[in-house]
Simulated scan of single mutants.
Amino acid sequence: MAARSKARKRAIDILFEAEQRQVNAGDLLRERLAAPVTEAPLSEFTADLVVGVVDHWNAINDLLTTYSQGWTLERMPAVDRAILRLGAYEVLFTDVPEGVAISEAVALATELSTDDSPKFVNGLLARIAEVKPTLA
C-alpha cells in the first residue's frame, strides 16, 4: 500500500474512533500526535486530512445528506461515514484529482466495509464531484 493510501487509512481510523468514542476528531488527533499509540507516528498528510475534514465538517455532512438518496448519515455504517467524509473533503477542498480521491475512497470501502459499500461510496462521491462546480 502506498504511503498516501496508508495515511488515508490512518485518517479514517481516527475519524471512526472519534465517532465511536463520541469525541471530537481534532481533539483525538492532537492526543495521537502528542502520545502515539502505534510504532509509526502519524504522518503530516494524515494530520492534514483529519484537520481538513474537521474544518469542513458541517458542509461535508450537509452535502452527504443532500446527495445520499434515501440514506441519512445515521443510517450509514460508521466506517462508510468516515470514508465518505474524507473522500468528500478531498474532492471538494484539496488539489487531489477527483478521480484519485474517489478511487482511494472506494478502495478503503472495499477493504473496510460491506460488500455494497464500494458502489455506494463511488456513486455518492461521483455525484458530489459532479455538482462541485455549482457549489460556491
Rank of each mutant, 00 (worst) to 15 (best):
F45Q: 11
G87N: 05
L64A: 08
V53W: 03
A2K: 13
R4L: 13
V121K: 02
R81T: 00
D95S: 13
M1G: 14
A7L: 02
K6I: 09
L64Y: 09
G26W: 05
L84T: 05
P77G: 09
E19W: 01
Y67S: 00
R127S: 11
E31I: 10
R32G: 03
P36R: 02
L92I: 10
D27E: 14
E19R: 12
D48H: 08
E90K: 12
D62I: 08
E17G: 00
R10N: 14
M76R: 10
S117I: 04
I128C: 04
D80F: 06
D62K: 15
W57R: 15
R32F: 03
L49H: 03
K132R: 15
E44W: 05
L73A: 10
M1L: 11
L64M: 10
A40G: 04
G26H: 09
A107T: 14
W71F: 13
R75K: 14
F93T: 08
L92R: 06
A40N: 10
G26D: 11
L29G: 07
A136T: 15
E39F: 01
L15T: 10
N61M: 10
A78N: 05
G99Y: 00
L42V: 07
M76F: 11
D48F: 02
I102V: 15
L125D: 08
H56L: 07
R30P: 04
R75Q: 15
P77I: 04
T46Y: 04
A59V: 14
F45N: 05
T134D: 13
H56Q: 15
A34Y: 03
T134E: 15
V50D: 03
L73E: 11
Q20C: 07
T72Y: 01
K6P: 00
F120V: 11
V23P: 01
E104V: 10
D116A: 15
V96I: 15
V100K: 13
G52M: 01
A11K: 05
M1C: 06
I14T: 02
I12T: 02
R85L: 07
R21T: 04
D116P: 01
P77M: 12
V100H: 11
P36K: 03
L29Y: 04
E130S: 06
V37L: 04
L64H: 09
V106P: 02
F45G: 02
L112T: 00
R81M: 00
A82Y: 00
L84S: 09
F45W: 09
W71G: 00
D48S: 11
P133F: 00
T114V: 08
V37D: 01
K119G: 09
I60P: 02
E98P: 04
V51N: 14
Q20D: 05
D55P: 01
E98V: 13
V54H: 04
P77Y: 12
